[in-house]
């Protein structure tokens, strides 16, 4: 699935927190049209890797390439402008703002227009079109006026993805988007993500193995900061190192 040109590449990313090596020379890539799932036990370093790629953390070694461009020296905001659309493990929205305002903020970032003082954010055609389209894709079109603090947990996860969509990113980085969702919510979001890979490839951190094997085109397994295997789902399932290190515990 997809062609072989990597849109996002992590090359030899290492990060230590004191004595803990949270990332050890991690190399992985993300190609057009794919969902690349990143799995691993708690504390393996999945969130750390997402933060290294997103720019929240600076690596001790290694670099990040986005669309062939070395973005290692850029901060989080600059990387977002370069096309990283990211969702957080713990929903991170503007609580007092409405759903539509949250999406409009994404559109503002995308269009690079925050320094407009007199026009109305919600009346601007271009902003509105971008925001509404993204909200429709994630199924929140009925909830435009709801304060995001009043959304259910699942709706907040949908909005996170909706805001990332307004950025028209080159890639999506999603840290456990299904965390805490009901079975029904997870099923719905699985459908959304499955379609979304055609918009932009997704680096997906996910705990739920059913979701991972249903969605992923490729899987990388992270254990103690190190990638021990990368490949298509069938190969990962069969990999003895993965079975003993990880899947063995998760699926008895």
């Amino acid at each position: 699935m997809g062609d072989a040109t990597p849109i996002l590449e992590a090359r030899g990313l290492s990060k230590r927190f004191g004595a803990i090596p949270a990332s050890r020379a991690v190399t992985l890539d993300l190609r057009a049209g794919e969902i690349h799932a990143l799995i691993g036990p708690n504390g393996a370093g999945k969130s750390t890797l997402i933060k290294l790629i997103a720019g929240d953390l600076t690596p001790d070694e290694g670099s990040v390439y986005l669309g062939g461009l070395d973005v290692t020296a850029l901060g989080t905001a600059a990387r977002a402008r370069e096309g990283l659309g990211r969702t957080f493990q713990i929903s991170s929205l503007i609580p007092e703002a409405s759903v539509l305002q949250n999406a409009t903020l994404g559109a503002l970032g995308r269009l690079g227009q925050p320094y407009r003082f007199f026009s109305r954010a919600l009346r601007d055609r271009a902003l509105r079109r971008t925001a509404e389209a993204a909200l429709a894709t994630v199924g929140l079109e009925e909830l435009h006026q709801t304060r995001s603090a009043e959304l259910s947990h699942g709706q907040r996860r949908q909005l996170e993805i909706g805001v990332a969509l307004t950025l028209a990113p080159k890639v999506f980085l999603m840290d456990e988007p299904m965390a805490g969702l009901s079975a029904e919510g997870a099923r719905q979001l699985t459908g959304i993500l499955s379609d979304l890979r055609r918009t932009a490839p997704i680096l997906l951190v996910e705990h739920d193995m059913d979701v991972v094997f249903a969605l992923a085109d490729r899987i990388s397994v992270l254990v103690a900061g190190e990638i021990i295997a990368t490949g298509p789902p069938d190969a990962i399932r069969a990999d003895p190192a993965v079975r003993s290190a990880y899947l063995g515990e998760a699926t008895p």
Partner: peptide
């Protein structure tokens, strides 16, 4: 200003910086 793109962005800066950075601002 309150209703403008700048106002929305500024109130976002007050409420959640990480979110603002994630949208490139």
């Amino acid at each position: 200003v309150d209703a403008s793109p700048f106002g929305l962005t500024l109130s976002a800066a007050r409420q959640n910086e990480a979110r603002l950075r994630a949208v490139g601002i």
